[in-house]
Every structure is written in structure tokens, then in C-alpha cells.
């Protein structure tokens, strides 16, 4: 491994490294989203997040009208561990539209 400047993105995980101690957005499987401060991560994308807001989106079909109802459930978690295999996407959240 060659030595890189700390701020360059040479491999994808550098993007995560540069987000340490920043608030990030994490998209997970089964329509879960997290926003929180990244405290630690590893090569599997296991992560430790603080001050987390979790949003769970569920689409239900109304029994009578067959209309799709989108339900979002929000909750706050002070501190949590995310298992990497559920991660789809990670982004610094402030720039999301």
C-alpha cells in the first residue's frame, strides 16, 4: 500500500473514513434509513452511530380501497451498532436534497 494524503478518496471506504465524526445518512435493507453521527466503522461497514434518527417506511394496502398507504415510523436512539450486511448506501446527509 502506498501512503496517501489523508483527504483523498482512493478507495470507496475512504469516503466513510472522511465522514468520521460527521453526521451521515445510511440506507439499509427492508426500507430503513438512519441519520446519525459516525463514531466508528470497519471494512464490513459495521458502524457505531450516535444521536440516531431511524425512519422505517412501510407500504400497506387498504383492505377495502386497495390504495397504497405509505407509513413512516420515526424513533430516536442515542447510540447504536449497525451490522454491515444490511447496508445499501452511505452518504454525508447535509448534501441530500
Amino acid at each position: 500500500m502506498a501512503t496517501e494524503e489523508e483527504s483523498t478518496v482512493k478507495e470507496p471506504l475512504d469516503l466513510i473514513r472522511l465522514s468520521l465524526d460527521e453526521r451521515i445518512y445510511v440506507k439499509l435493507r427492508s426500507d430503513r434509513e438512519l441519520r446519525g453521527k459516525l463514531h466508528a466503522y470497519d471494512q464490513h461497514l459495521n458502524m457505531i452511530l450516535g444521536d440516531v434518527e431511524e425512519v422505517v417506511t412501510a407500504v400497506e394496502i387498504d383492505d377495502e380501497t386497495y390504495e397504497e398507504i405509505v407509513r413512516t415510523t420515526r424513533r430516536s436512539v442515542p447510540f447504536l451498532f449497525v451490522r454491515g450486511d444490511g447496508v445499501i448506501l452511505v452518504s454525508p446527509p447535509l448534501r441530500t436534497a
Partner: peptide
């Protein structure tokens, strides 16, 4: 990065990391 679900733009991200197994 632009996110499209069923061909419709759903989200924009300045930077995005996508986990390879997906």
C-alpha cells in the same frame, strides 16, 4: 448521485458509498 426507483428520481446525494454486495 441520483437515485431512481421505477425510473423516477427519488433522491440526490453529493457523495455516496454503495456497498458492493447490493
Amino acid at each position: 448521485t441520483e437515485e431512481y426507483v421505477n425510473g423516477q428520481l427519488k433522491n440526490k446525494y453529493g457523495d455516496a458509498f454503495i456497498r458492493g454486495n447490493n
